[in-house]
């Protein structure tokens, strides 16, 4: 019976050890911001952070997340980088259907936390695992570059 730390809050769940974190959050905890797109770590829609690093929660057993800091799209409003990225996403009108965007944002935040001024190649490398079937890639790229600029200027 793992205890989870999600966006700074402790949550009790009663699920099997091998249940992927994605389904625990979505079905058991009602946190539906992280999306199901493939279930095989192929699309990035389910991206969350474990101790600050992006993971594909659809293949992360809940047991691997116990005792670690889980952060999700729902927590990004109170994350300094998260806020800047979310704002850049709005200003660039990135979303079309929007379904992939939570995952895109989580991966982008992960990138900008480790790489403050990413090159085009670094963006390709980090974002390659996040599919957008609507084809918002050019705007995602623009939003990441803008967010990086903002963060370099110290922020908001």
């Amino acid at each position: 019976m793992p205890q989870l730390n999600v966006n700074g809050q402790t949550r009790e769940v009663d699920v099997p050890d091998d249940m992927p974190l994605l389904w625990v959050l979505r079905d058991e905890l009602g946190m539906t911001g992280s999306k199901f797109g493939c279930g095989m770590a192929l699309c990035g829609a389910c991206t969350m952070h474990l101790d600050g690093a992006p993971v594909r929660s659809c293949v992360t057993p809940v047991s691997a997340a116990a005792g670690r800091a889980i952060s999700t799209i729902e927590g990004m409003e109170s994350d300094r980088v998260g806020q800047v990225v979310q704002q850049a996403w709005i200003e660039n009108n990135v979303a079309q259907c929007g379904y992939c965007q939570a995952g895109q944002i989580m991966t982008a935040v992960g990138l900008l936390k480790t790489t403050t001024a990413p090159t085009e190649e670094q963006i390709d490398g980090a974002m390659g695992g996040n599919i957008c079937r609507c084809g918002t890639y050019p705007r995602i790229r623009a939003a990441i570059l803008q967010a990086a600029d903002r963060l370099a200027q110290g922020g908001e």
Partner: peptide
């Protein structure tokens, strides 16, 4: 005019068919 759901989408608060509970 921006998408009416733009902000909610970025915050993971927009409700898709998959998110029904």
């Amino acid at each position: 005019v921006r998408l009416v759901d733009l902000e909610a989408i970025g915050k993971g608060q927009a409700t898709y068919g998959m998110d029904m509970r």
